[in-house]
Amino acid sequence: MYKILKKEVLSPTLKLFEIDAPKVAKKCQAGQFIILRIDEKGERIPLTIADFDRERGTITLIFAEVGKTTQQLGQMEAGDALLDFVGPLGRPSEIEKYGRVVCIGAGVGIAPVFPITRALKEAGNEVIGIAGARNEELLFWTDEFRAQCDEFHICTDDGSAGEKGFVSNILKKIIEEKGQVDYVIAIGPIPAMKVCAELTKPYGIKTFVSLNSIMVDGTGMCGACRVTVGDETKFACVDGPEFDGHLVDFNEQMRRAQIFKDEEQRALAAGSCGGGGCGCH
């Protein structure tokens, strides 16, 4: 069992957990993910690592409550334990001294881009950070994120915090103003990553994105996380989760994310009257 040591409610649908998982914490690197399972009947879900503390042996996760499992997870408290916690999985981010880098976290993507930003800063890059969300309530970790950056921007779709607009608007401005950007990492909803990658392509700026595909085992066994990269099929779990944003078929990824949409609705419906998350029992 893997104990939840700390819980923070970042917004009503956005939660932070610190999990006691010393073996994972000892080995994990920026860009990797874990797979967890809440209980005996639970599904295995991948979550990208938001932070880790090797000395305390903890992994920090931040998740948005979007489906049955993440809702159930959101109701757990410090002191509760997860049945399964596997990792670190996937390839770590390629951390190098690129020069000037832009690190973009959109929505819950702010969490996984944080340790990558820190690693890029430690590698001696000039780091420009962009944090974006739909509204102020869904923004988090802006101070922590800012502390890793030489320059930092905030934006919201509705203008309730920072600039009004999308992360891609700010990215565009940065590229135009600075002239030279050497590396971009963008993590967030697929449409946001797609727009960022399309934006940097004409400039030839190396741009990586991190995919959170549907997975079962997370070790290369099931192939559910297939993604077309260039003219090849890759597995996000063992070949990724980061890929060259200029080569990823984002449209395919968007459609593949919908595979179990109907079932997800059914699970939520069953949960709300089956003694699950709704509290009606």
């Binding site: 009947k41 295995r44 049955k68 595979i259 059914r266 699970a267």
Partner: peptide, 14 residues
């Protein structure tokens, strides 16, 4: 994952 028992078990199959 016992998807044949979905939604009692959480893993779906279509």
């Amino acid at each position: 994952m016992k998807a044949y028992l979905f939604p009692e078990y959480d893993t779906p199959i279509k």
